[in-house]
Amino acid sequence: MAAEVLAQGGASVTVYDAMPSAGRKFLMAGRGGLNLTHSEPLTEFLPRYREAMPHLRAAVEAFPPDALRDWSAGLGQLTFIGSSGRVFPKTFKASPLLRAWLRRLDAAGVQFAFRHRWTGWDEKRQLELQTPDGLRAVAARAAVLALGGASWPRLGSDGAWVDILAAKGVAISKLRSANSGFTVAWSDVFRDRFEGQPLKGVALTIGAHTVRGEAMITRSGIEGGAIYALSAELREAVLGIGKATLMIALRPDLGADALTKRLSGNRGKQSLANFLRKAAQLSPVGIGLMQEAAIASGRPLAAFSPAELADLVNAIPVQLTGVAPLDRAISTAGGISFDELDDHFMLRKLPGVFAAGEMLDWEAPTGGYLLQASFATGAAAGRGALAWLKR
């Protein structure tokens, strides 16, 4: 995006990419359907960036979701708004959009140099790039660094830039997993039976934060959209005290009194699991979670009174014991401190060097917010570099 803005402004632009081809992480983002952005108003959209909102506001307002949709349409990829408000290309894929984008960049004169890994600067302040033919030095009047975070490093964003910039005195917050799963010490019985099973229509809570949505049981823990939306709070708790207690409500729209009434009926010869499934419309995996909680409490679930069962249905404690590895996280928290950047996304300690995307210290939930901020900061860094060239 920075290259496009610069080329449109008349600059001569080369994109140096460590990988053998362009946009590998972009293609990965579209593997399950390319969620470009979200349709909600900016008054709701911008707070998704949490503490980073003041630093990202101007960039997103300058290139908002509607502009991103128009940009995609200009590349022949019309978009639609899904039932959740998320915005997707009608093809649902990343590859047609990427191909059209690369054709546009080529027509604008943008050059691409693949298998060129940036390793820093030489004594003449030239960019150093490791290539198949050895070390190459490139003199550039301006440089935009868009090197990603450190999730999915096999796609190119391995976080190696952290040490390079830190050596120049640039303050960088530690890179951490964002939009990641968490580990849970499930019992063998629960793990073997419910691995890969979804929890639908649940409410997840940690502290004062509650999210409605879906989650997925994994062999080692739990992940999914609602988990990702709480990942910052969950991660900080786990990293701070070694664990986090996630509360799961299986029937968040039913109050305790209504559930108690349903669960006070005569069970007859039904098993407890069948009774819970029919009386409270609970899924087998939800009942399994209740069994896990009962085991942890030291009491069999069958010993719970109807009122206790009702309370448990909407307050199942699940103890998270760890964060999924960074290389498997969807995105990265941490990065270059915004205090290190001026209003044009230029590094104050490195005049003429700009940074954008996941390199910066922000995070957001899935839902289109990640790509939107990456596009918007890329465009902002491109505008900043263009102004630097024209100063």
Rank of each mutant, 00 (worst) to 15 (best):
M1S: 15
A2C: 06
L6M: 14
A11L: 11
D17P: 03
A22G: 06
L27W: 11
M28I: 14
N35F: 01
L36F: 09
T37P: 07
P47N: 02
A58P: 02
E61S: 09
P64C: 09
S84G: 09
G85Q: 07
R86P: 01
A94E: 08
L97D: 09
L98Y: 13
V110R: 03
Q111D: 15
T119A: 12
T119N: 02
R125D: 15
R125L: 12
R125N: 15
G134L: 14
R136P: 10
A137F: 15
G149Y: 01
G149E: 02
S151D: 07
W152C: 02
G159C: 02
A166F: 08
K168H: 13
G181H: 07
T183I: 05
S187I: 08
S187G: 14
D188I: 09
F194S: 04
Q197Y: 13
L199P: 03
K200F: 05
A203T: 15
T218N: 08
G225A: 15
A237L: 09
G242P: 00
K243I: 11
K243Q: 15
A244D: 10
T245G: 04
M247T: 14
K261G: 04
S264A: 14
Q270Y: 08
S271H: 03
R277V: 01
A279S: 11
A280L: 08
P284Y: 11
I287A: 04
G288A: 08
Q291A: 14
A293T: 11
I295V: 13
A296G: 10
S297E: 13
S297K: 12
L301C: 08
A302W: 07
L309D: 06
A315R: 14
I316T: 04
P317K: 04
V323Q: 05
R328T: 07
A329Q: 01
G334D: 03
G334M: 06
E340I: 00
V353E: 00
V353Q: 02
E358V: 03
M359G: 03
D361T: 03
D361M: 00
D361A: 00
A364R: 01
G367D: 10
L370T: 00
Q372A: 08
A373R: 04
A373P: 00
S374T: 10
S374Y: 00
